[in-house]
Amino acid sequence: MDAIDYAILRLLQEDASLPVTEIAARINLSQTPTWRRIQKLEQAGVIDRRVALLDPQAVGRDITVFVDIETRDHSSEWLAEFARKVASMPEVMEVYRMAGEIDYTLRISVGSMADFDAFYRALIDAVPLKNVTSRFAMERIKYTTAFAI
């Protein structure tokens, strides 16, 4: 990748709906080479997908909860089952395997405490867990999906 590819990626991270003509104009390249570069970045997997980012409050999902999980079982079979279960839960936005005292951290989005309680009950019934700790976000101060490139 070169400086032009990075410029394209910065623009697409800011607004993936930009027409190729606009991107080309901003990077001082003609439309066809710009389009080819975008296609190459997509084929190479650098651009994973293009999506619309929604306002959580506008869609009734304005409660963000970080759920820390400890498990007694660290087998690959347990992890596969855990990953399958949490992937099927629509409240789960992100899942991370952690280093340190916590084994996994989930970021979930729900619309109410009742929704969270239903999620929590489903989670603890899904696979054996040692401990589950939940922390509720009071305010989102910074949010981005753009990488600094």
Rank of each mutant, 00 (worst) to 15 (best):
K142G: 14
A126M: 12
L106C: 04
R26P: 05
F66L: 02
R26W: 03
I141Y: 03
S88I: 01
I149Y: 05
A52N: 11
A114V: 13
I69Y: 08
L18N: 06
R50Q: 04
G60Q: 06
R36D: 06
S112M: 11
H74G: 05
W78L: 10
A87V: 04
L106I: 12
R61G: 02
T144A: 02
Y120K: 00
E101H: 12
E22M: 11
E94D: 13
R36Q: 14
N28Q: 13
R61A: 07
Y6W: 05
A114R: 12
L12M: 13
D55T: 02
V20K: 08
Q57C: 01
Y120R: 02
G111Q: 01
D2C: 06
I8G: 09
A114S: 15
I38N: 07
G100Y: 08
P19A: 09
V51P: 01
E70A: 06
L54R: 05
F82L: 04
V65W: 01
L53T: 13
Q57K: 13
D68S: 15
P56T: 05
D48L: 12
V65K: 01
Y6N: 09
F66G: 00
S75A: 05
T145Q: 03
I8C: 14
V92L: 07
E81K: 15
R50H: 14
R97F: 04
G100I: 10
T21K: 10
A83V: 04
K142Y: 12
L41S: 04
L106T: 09
E101A: 15
A3W: 00
I124P: 02
G100T: 13
R72N: 12
F147S: 10
D62V: 00
N131G: 02
A16F: 03
T21W: 00
T21Y: 01
A148K: 13
A137K: 05
I47F: 10
P56S: 07
A148D: 13
D103V: 04
E81Q: 15
D125W: 02
A44Q: 08
R140N: 03
E101M: 08
T21F: 00
S134Q: 11
